[in-house]
């Protein structure tokens, strides 16, 4: 492989990196868009309640709403700190 090929390969990567990054962020944002409006507030209030008892960070709480056919599942995932 010559040095030119090396440059060519590294260039080839940037467009596909862009595509990959976009697919991830767009999927994530679409997911958020379809969520009900109250979800962020619900998440905040749940966090406040949990914080009364345990010291957790904002990013340690994950609230997700999944739709399975005609029922919705509210999933709450909290990582408690190590003792």
């Amino acid at each position: 492989m010559s040095i030119f090929d090396y440059f060519r390969n590294s260039k080839k990567a940037t467009a596909s990196i862009a595509k990959e990054r976009l697919q991830i962020i767009v999927a994530h944002e679409r997911n958020q868009r379809s969520q009900p409006d109250y979800l962020p507030k619900l998440q905040q209030e749940l966090l406040d309640v949990i914080r009364k008892y345990v010291d957790v960070d904002q990013d340690q709480v994950e609230v997700q709403l999944d739709n399975n056919g005609n029922c919705s599942v509210l999933e709450l995932n909290i990582v408690l700190p190590d003792r």
Binding site: R8, K11, K19
Partner: peptide, 17 residues
């Protein structure tokens, strides 16, 4: 630039959006 892999191609953008 698309051919060189430096720019998102039309198929990529269509697929993402």
């Amino acid at each position: 630039r698309v051919e060189k892999g430096e720019m998102l191609g039309v198929k990529d953008v269509e697929e993402i959006l």
